[in-house]
Amino acid sequence: MQGDSQREDLRQELAADLNGAFERLVLEYQDRLYRFALSYTGDPRDAEEVVQDALIRAYGALGRYEPTRVRELALRAWLYRITLNVARNRARGVRPRLVPLEGPDGDTALPEPEADSAERPDSVYEGAERRRELDALLAGLPARYREAVVLRHVEGLAYEEAAEVLGRKVGTVKSDVHRGLRLLRDAIGDRRTDEVI
């Protein structure tokens, strides 16, 4: 994770020369915003479009803001918030496709886990598979809990920052995370039981 001083530098640069500094913003934040969008949509192609749209909107907004406002921006929370809004709007507009039209990188269909997967040592392949499984389960959570769990435990945000992104009280976010984790555990439990049967 980057230091606060580095983030300060970026905001200074954005305020002074948006066009020159914007590429750095993209490079610095694209991974975490993509992850966030992926956990939200459950589909790599949709997640990619959400992040692209969000960053283009961010550029437009930064161009309209006064430099003093840019320098004081809580950049990370602000970018998560834009991404969240884009993802929410898309979810309202079009139902996400469950089966992507093309692969392989657009392929989110869940491979059936092998029966003895719990006994096998971790491998890269299995890690990726588990991640896709967890992504799908996350995408199935009600949005309110999904958003809170992803920000807190995937992105590692403090409760205070997650609360700022979500526009909810810190206490509410804590209980949303708690409830979300429980729902997720139940969903995983159901899945594992299905495998045995």
């Binding site: 590429e23 694209q30 692209q52 550029y59 990188d105 967890l134 995937v154 590692g156 997720l184």
Partner: peptide, 26 residues
């Protein structure tokens, strides 16, 4: 265990096409 698993998602990287599409859109 679940939280540890969730935190492993941090290894996911954005596709290479994000930057060019964003710069074109901007």
């Amino acid at each position: 265990a679940l939280i540890r698993e969730l935190s492993r998602h941090r290894a996911v990287r954005a596709p290479a096409s994000v930057l060019p599409v964003v710069l074109a859109g901007a």
